[in-house]
Write a protein that binds this DNA or RNA. Structure first.
Length: 105
DNA sequence: GCCATGGCTAGTA
DNA sequence: GCCATGGCTAGTA
């Protein structure tokens, strides 16, 4: 049980390092956390993140540059997309250019 | 235990 | 294909 939380903590730690205005993929986070092949776990952890968390969850997208989260605000805008655009990260044809905005640690 | 289910993905086609 | 979770049966005791 404690091992699991430790993994989650490592993952969140790495996500917290993603710089403003950049994005990283689930797989990339997993790898940097020392957990290659655990991309899905990253998704799981983020899904269960509590609302109060200060972790920049929205800077994590899939490896194709697409947003996986579908949550909308009252205006019908995708919440994650809004948060990214507020940092200057925009979508083109529904995708973020990883070349431009991808985090290179 | 077994099996389905995910905020996924490298590597084909 | 990967892998942690969670719900749900067998099958013991």
């Amino acid at each position: 049980m404690q091992d699991t939380n430790e993994l989650h903590r490592q993952i969140l730690e790495v996500i917290a390092l993603i710089p403003y205005g950049t994005v990283a993929s689930y797989g990339q986070i997993a790898k940097l956390a020392g957990l290659p092949k655990h991309a899905r776990l990253v998704g799981y952890v983020l899904k269960h993140l509590d609302k109060e968390s200060q972790i920049p969850w929205y800077r994590v997208i899939n490896s194709q540059g697409k947003i996986s989260v579908t949550r909308m605000d009252e205006k019908g805008n995708n919440v994650q997309q809004d948060l990214l655009e507020a940092e200057g990260v925009y979508l083109l044809n529904g995708k973020v250019s990883l070349k431009k905005f991808g985090w290179q640690p």
